[in-house]
Amino acid sequence: MASVRSTITKLSIVVVAMYGFSYALVPIYDTFCEITGLNGKTNDVAYTGNDIKKENRFVKIKFISNVANSAPLYFEPAVTEMTVQVGKPYNTHYVMKNNSSKQLHTTASPSVTPGKYAEYFKKIECFCFNQQTINSGEIKDLGIQFVVDDDLPTNIGDIVLSYTMFDITNNVMESSKL
């Protein structure tokens, strides 16, 4: 039955292709989110450009924080809101304390709300570009330097910058064992 064999071959190709497609959805989704500004993802490498011009308008930035899965961490912004001039770089920082009795490895995940303004919030320097190691009881200042892009539309409300801090000690320990 040559015809049966050819049907099976074609169908098997479809099966393999659809399995591959499920993995292809991952980069497709990322690209889609980047284009549409979905999820409020900000730049995850430092902004180094110099084409942003200072403008005589101001926008309010609010800072909030979360600790994932009740990790033993104190993690709060040093200032909870700033009124910033568009195009001018600013510095601020978050404070983190390790409340556990052992050394922890952490990483932070940023998000901007409303998501469509995420692309105008440029981070020149951010602790979220790296992982942190923090000893028991240690208090750390985690710095951010940012600038608001002058392409930002006018007449918008406040922009909220949120960081979620994850305790990744177990993952780091496991991969160092391997």
Binding site: V14, Y19, Y23
Partner: peptide
Amino acid sequence: LIAAMPVLAGAITM
């Protein structure tokens, strides 16, 4: 089935 089940397999493998 042929188009959908492999996608489930991919998702749960991830």
